[in-house]
Simulated scan of single mutants.
Amino acid sequence: MTTSSTPTARNEVATRLIDGSIRRSHNSLLEIDWGAPQDPDLFYMPPEMITLYGTPLWEKMTHRERVELSRQEVANTFSRAVWFENTLNQGLLRAMLYQDPTSPHVHYALTELGDETRHMVMFGKMVSAIGAEPYRLSRVQAMAVQAMPLFYRGLMLYLAALCGEEVIDDVQRKFLNHPELQPIVAQTMRIHIAEEARHIRFAREGVRRHVRTAPWWSRTFCATANGAAGFILDKMFMDKRVYERCGLPVREAVRQAKANEFSQARRRAAFADFHEFLEDNNLLNLVSRTLWRRYGFLA
């Protein structure tokens, strides 16, 4: 009898994921009408997802000002998603140097690389289509991000993928059919959700497989380091430059956003399933729990 940790079982999972990719893959360049007119009264993300939703500043804003804030926050999220996909692709490519290029496991990893590359194009096209300027990394941030793939080995590779995918996927699923959402954003979410489901399955299987055999120091490192994802996700959801571009008082906007209990509750709800997965696989410790809590993902 095979288990998910055996090469046979691993390749069986990969084969099923490849079959799913054949049946249901997307090309946003063909499927999304990037030049379609956008309704100036519709939000670029559901208002409930906006960092200032329900705050005193929010109550003072006009509807169009709220829409503009949603536009800038979407541009920030998608801009940062591009560099995350970049680091994940680098990690997958490095891992393949040591793997069998004839195996279905490697073939699915290459399939995922293709998906992620198209997602990077899709996110870039989205920022351009909504008329926003991308949110670029600073030189220091870019250097830190460039170093991240160096740590994406074995268990950490699959865990890092989940840290970047699980929370965003949960948020998109919950708000995909929001009645006030711009159609162009909804279509982008549909494509991302459909393909990300396979990526999450692949990464979860990878974590379960590696956590059984990884040495104690690797498990300890992963259980500690995943808390840094709370900081990264916090920046994907909130960047002070968003408030600058919207003409809001930056310090006060940041203060209210950080204290916004509605926003904190949304983060905790989005993290709940992934939190359970981490606990089930003994991949949380005092350090990571403290960091996830510090950025609002744990109560």
Rank of each mutant, 00 (worst) to 15 (best):
T6M: 09
P7C: 07
A9F: 12
V13I: 15
R16K: 12
D19P: 02
S25D: 05
L29T: 12
Q38V: 10
T51N: 12
Y53V: 02
G54Y: 01
W58P: 06
K60W: 10
K60R: 15
R64K: 05
E68H: 06
R71E: 10
N76V: 11
T77D: 08
A81H: 07
A81Y: 04
N86F: 07
Q90V: 11
L93C: 10
A95V: 06
P101K: 13
T111Y: 08
E112Q: 15
M126H: 01
M126Q: 03
R139E: 15
E166R: 04
D169Q: 13
H178C: 07
E180A: 15
T188M: 12
R190E: 02
E195F: 05
R201Q: 14
F202R: 03
F202W: 14
V207P: 00
H210Q: 14
C222M: 05
C222E: 01
A229S: 15
I232M: 14
K235C: 02
K235T: 05
F237S: 04
R245Q: 07
A259P: 02
Q264P: 00
A265W: 08
R267L: 03
A270V: 00
F274N: 00
L278W: 03
L278S: 07
E279T: 14
L283C: 09
L284A: 11
S288I: 02
W292I: 02
R293N: 09
G296R: 01
F297E: 01
A299H: 14
